[in-house]
C-alpha cells in the first residue's frame, strides 16, 4: 500500500552518511585536539603583525619581488634587517620546519608547495 520499508532504508542511509564526522571521530579516538602551537619567545618578534593569517601572502610577495623582479633589498623591522627569504629569513628564527610549519599544516590539511624546491633546516 505504501513504500515505507524502502523509504526507511533510504532514510537510514542518508542519516548514516550525514553523521559521518561523529562515527569517524568515534572510530579514530576521542583525542582530537593537537598539541600546543609553537609560540614566540619573550622579546622576539616576527617581521609580520599577524603571521598566522598572512604568512602565505608575504612569502608569495617576496618570491615575486626577489625571484621575478630581482629586488633583493632587505626589509627593516624595528631597526633590524631581514632577508626577504624563506630559508635565509623565516627559517633563521623558526628553525624547525616540523614544529613551525608542519604541525598546523598537517592538522588543518593545508598543503603547501614550498618544500618542493626549498630545503628545510638541517636534517630535513
Amino acid at each position: 500500500m505504501n513504500d515505507k520499508p524502502k523509504i526507511i532504508v533510504g532514510l537510514v542511509v542518508v542519516l548514516v552518511a550525514a553523521t559521518f564526522p561523529f562515527w569517524y571521530t568515534l572510530a579514530k579516538g576521542r583525542d582530537v585536539l593537537p598539541e600546543d602551537r609553537e609560540r614566540p619567545s619573550e622579546g622576539s618578534r616576527c617581521v609580520m603583525d599577524d603571521p598566522v593569517a598572512n604568512h602565505m601572502q608575504v612569502l608569495n610577495t617576496w618570491r615575486d619581488e626577489v625571484v621575478r623582479e630581482g629586488d633583493t633589498e632587505q626589509i627593516k623591522v624595528d631597526g633590524k634587517k631581514y632577508h626577504k627569504s624563506l630559508t635565509d629569513g623565516c627559517l633563521q628564527c623558526h628553525s624547525s620546519r616540523e614544529d613551525h610549519c608542519d604541525r598546523c599544516h598537517e592538522y588543518a590539511n593545508v598543503e603547501l608547495t614550498c618544500w618542493e624546491c626549498h630545503l628545510g633546516s638541517k636534517g630535513d
Partner: peptide
Amino acid sequence: WTKTDIVSVKQVAVGLSGFSFD
C-alpha cells in the same frame, strides 16, 4: 580576506564531532 585562525576553527569543529571542547 580576513583569514581565520584555521587551527582554532578545526579545534572547534573536531571538538564538535568528538564531543570534547576547548
